[in-house]
Amino acid sequence: MGRRHSESDSSSDSDSDSDSEDLNKYGEPHGYDPAFKGPISNRGCTDIICCLIFIAFLVGEAGIAYIAFTNGDPSNILYPEDYLGQVCGDNITADSAVADKPNLLYFDWLDCLQTASLTMLRCPTTRVCVNNCTSETYSISDRYESQLLTTSPVDVDWTDFVCRYDVDPESMIQNEGETIRTLLDKKLCAEFYWKSHPYDQRCIPSVMIEDGDISGNEIL
């Protein structure tokens, strides 16, 4: 019995010592004051200049957005453009030459993988608007290998050629002394095509978007 009383006294002494240490460290606790309303006496704005700069920034952003919306053309971002800057499938302009050609075909996808192209975020290859994306993979130079240098090729399916709008390959070869090889070297016509599917109105090679068989001659 005496032992328990002794232990209780020791515990009380320990608590008292702890309370004394807290008082010495943190001071006496603040008593209840019904008139106390919090630390609001000496408050004020400390970053007025930063606030003004931020407001000016928001006003500037709004101004840029207004100018872009009133003077810009959102279709240049949303829809693909050909090498002349025409929007494929543009039905706004009545006389648009590409109004019925909604898909964009790239002459050479390999050009898009060059380091300079990746840094500029723009593919330098010729781009034309087409009705339909190419349904097979083939090479013009392979398909007409024996007639690349002749000015009078025979048994040529001119629909195989995808060229710039101002280029008529049949007429240029037969009437202007050009050859299939020169048209390809001058990049007036695309030399090879991938089987492709339209994705966001752009003809994307099938090998990039699906695992399927590639018809025609594979270009490796």
Rank of each mutant, 00 (worst) to 15 (best):
T150W: 04
V167C: 04
D166M: 03
D157T: 15
D157A: 11
T137L: 07
T159I: 07
I180D: 03
T150Y: 02
D168S: 15
D168Q: 11
M172K: 08
V128K: 00
C123K: 00
C129E: 04
R164I: 13
V128T: 10
D157G: 04
C123G: 08
D168L: 06
T134Y: 00
V162I: 15
S171L: 10
N131D: 13
P124D: 09
R127C: 05
D168R: 02
C133F: 02
S139T: 14
V154A: 12
N132D: 14
P153F: 09
M172E: 13
D168P: 08
P169N: 03
T137Y: 02
Y165L: 10
E170W: 02
E170N: 11
T179A: 08
N132F: 11
V167E: 05
T134E: 11
T126G: 01
D155K: 09
V128R: 01
T151F: 00
N175Y: 07
S146M: 09
I140E: 08
Q147E: 14
V128C: 02
T150V: 14
V156S: 02
R164C: 05
C129D: 07
R164D: 09
S146L: 12
E178V: 13
V128G: 02
D157H: 04
C123W: 06
M120D: 15
R164K: 14
P169K: 03
S171Y: 10
I180W: 01
S171H: 07
D155N: 15
S139G: 13
Q174L: 15
T179K: 02
V156A: 06
P124N: 04
Y165A: 12
V167T: 15
S139K: 02
L121M: 14
T179N: 04
G177K: 05
T137W: 03
T151S: 12
Q147T: 13
V162A: 02
D160I: 09
L149P: 00
C129T: 11
V154Y: 02
C123D: 11
V167K: 03
Y144V: 11
R143F: 05
T179H: 03
S139Q: 07
E145P: 00
C163I: 10
S135G: 07
T151P: 01
F161L: 09
R181H: 13
C163L: 07
